[in-house]
Nucleic acid binder design. Structure first.
Lengths: 166, 166
DNA sequence: TATAACATGTAACAAGTTACATGATTTC
DNA sequence: GAAATCATGTAACTTGTTACATGTTATA
């Protein structure tokens, strides 16, 4: 649902082909939001079936053809509907990574500290990645800002936990 | 992977049957971690096949039988392995709910504010739920604490965003 | 006596990923 | 001339959920 919204929202500003949409999302938003190529193509197919988008074929020489999608009035209506629905909604985050923390006591303090320091490194790297992702696309800025904030909190919290271990 | 760890970790302290495991997770951790009954039964089947757990049938009168699972030495080894792996790892959170925020400008400030206030209510309710979930099970306390912290940040951040809208 | 809780399970579906396949063009 | 990038797509697989099916016992 949110992914359809994302594609529609991008197509609203200009017509684009699948590869291009995927690149745009991957490079500007890749740390915060995933959307793999097959998923993108698949969603575009579905949205075509529903009449939300249309495409025209574009070919340059012998290159593989591009299917350039544009949003239809029907699609604009869907965008408006989805936008309102998604904005008013909030899907709770799943805290799966936390499960292992419930069993910390099964390990020695030293080993626990060592393993958690690896986890910390991953979060630190993610934070750096997000910081470099800060981009020209002002629409995406909110998402990136939120993600940064989240990761900073994660780091802070993990460090508190590690301090308690000692 | 984390779910197997969760089940193994619980079975480590005492033998339990599927329904019981699901109830324990649902009632003490339901806001932070989901694990539906069919998923639980399915995981227990798989872990039986792998020799991580064994079960004995227990029957009271004409009631449906219970299959009470215990962890095996093989399962304890798997627990130790999974625990180390999961602790040192960190799966980045997906920020799907944020996608709609990228298109806020498509709406009037009034409508945006109204929709975001609905979102805020959902987060507030989740926070209350998490706060009531604070439980006797001290193992789960870390997870709940983390979730609370996360939701407080979410609320704060959303309110800042709403303030900026004005 | 109806409904909720106890107890397990199957089958269909949903959403998305990975791996594979194809083929042209640009870059090193 | 090899590798990366451009461009699309299919098929299999993964992970988990929902809906359905079954039957007992406690509770209102």
């Amino acid at each position: 649902m949110e992914r359809e919204l994302l594609l529609l929202g991008l197509l609203r500003t200009q017509a684009m082909y699948g590869y291009q949409l995927n690149e745009m999302i991957d490079s500007h938003l890749g740390t915060s939001i995933q959307l793999k190529k097959p998923t993108a193509y698949n969603l575009l197919d579905k949205m075509t079936d529903e009449g939300w988008v249309t495409y025209r074929e574009e070919q340059e020489g012998n290159r593989p053809p591009r299917y350039v999608y544009s949003i239809t009035p029907h699609g604009e209506a869907a965008f408006q509907r989805l936008l309102r629905k998604c904005l008013a909604d909030y899907k709770p985050t799943e805290f799966r990574s936390d499960i292992s923390l419930a069993f910390l006591e099964a390990l020695s303090r030293e080993e626990a500290a060592f393993l958690l320091s690896k986890r910390r490194t991953i979060i630190q790297n993610l934070l750096e990645q997000v910081n470099t992702e800060a981009t020209q696309n002002s629409n995406f800025q909110v998402i990136i800002e939120h993600h940064r904030r989240h990761l900073e909190m994660e780091l802070e919290w993990l460090e508190e936990l590690m301090a308690k271990l000692k």
